[in-house]
Design a protein around this nucleic acid. Structure first.
Lengths: 194, 194
DNA sequence: ACCTGAACACCGTTCAAGT
DNA sequence: ACCTGAACACCGTTCAAGT
């Protein structure tokens, strides 16, 4: 007999993402997700292998949105200005979705192959400006200075780990400026010594 | 009637810390902790308010150990060398206790007042060298560049987020060098413009 | 004084039964 | 074809009962 679906993968992921953001990782339950899409928990298993698989789908959706934000933050032909704008977009994304952001970097679940490619795609919009700033042979190393700073700063901010007062906006701007200028200087030094 | 305790706070915390490291955050259970110290789960509630309180005690023990590592890493009177040594100690600590480290920065649980002071104490051994490098009025800002980089780098490393190959040791050393030189340069510029 | 079994509410997950 | 109630194992947590 016919039995039309009551919901869809996309609706489930959207509901799960909203609930995760509202209730936090520890308050997230499949019962709530099922109820939010008008279904019972066992029905979710027709579409997702298990809780971890559903959370991974949420994670992928978050990475895609971050990639979109970074692409939209390309505001100039000046690599320095674009990278600053993208750094601000990155921070704004994390502050807008703190629980989602911490899921994106959750240590407990290793990224799958799809996860790896979605992450690579998400950060790709920042590569042209970074390469323009530091040169192609140096961009991977530079990314491994900039990205850790960004991730570390926003995850500490989200986790309330900055406790000694002072404006975080200014600290962030200063950190970005210090790092970007330091990276650009590294390149000049490498050139000179060649 | 007398009833001597079968265990102690310290033994419970030690067992919990070992189990957390072995089984991960999601595999951590009070039943396992109780079994490890020869007791039943309800007995743990005499000593800790709940699961969150026990995990917080584990977290505090980890922060104290990190502080000890950073203090032992003071190897020179040269601030640059000491900070590099401490950065390596920080990374080594995170790699030695990946599940513990991610608990220390877990976004889900806000730090308590005791948590705040233990964190401050843990990072204190790095302050003299940092102040010597960048000057007292600039050390907070500098800490907010260096600490995020350290935390971001090691949490990405632990979470397997560096996927494009290349040696992570070299990337870490390079990042530290770039940031420390950048911070020192900031100070010189600030001096000159005064 | 300290520990425990039993009970409760709530999980994630499976599966046979329903339509 | 899709959904569900019932069941299972496993949680964290409470508490009256044991010694």
């Amino acid at each position: 007999m016919p039995a039309p679906p009551k919901t869809s993968d996309a609706r489930i992921v959207a509901a799960a993402r909203g609930l995760l953001e509202r209730n936090g990782r520890d308050g997230f339950s499949l019962n709530d997700v099922a109820a939010a899409v008008g279904v019972r928990a066992p029905s979710l298993y027709r579409r997702f292998d298990d809780r971890a698989a559903l959370l991974e789908a949420v994670e992928l959706s978050l990475w895609r949105d971050l990639g979109r934000s970074l692409a939209e933050a390309i505001v100039s032909h000046q690599p320095l200005e674009t990278l600053q704008s993208q750094a601000r977009a990155y921070r704004a994304f994390a502050r807008a979705h703190p629980n989602g952001y911490s899921l994106m970097f959750d240590v407990q679940s290793r990224p799958t192959e799809e996860g790896v490619s979605v992450r690579t795609d998400a950060l790709a919009p920042a590569l042209p400006a970074l390469t323009a700033l530091v040169g192609p042979e140096y961009s991977l190393l530079a990314a491994r200075v900039l990205t850790p700073f960004l991730h570390g700063f926003v995850s500490m901010e989200i986790g309330d780990a900055f406790r000694l007062g002072g404006g975080l906006d200014a600290a962030f701007e200063h950190g970005i400026a210090t790092i970007l200028h330091g990276l650009a200087r590294d390149r000049r030094r490498a050139r000179r010594s060649r």
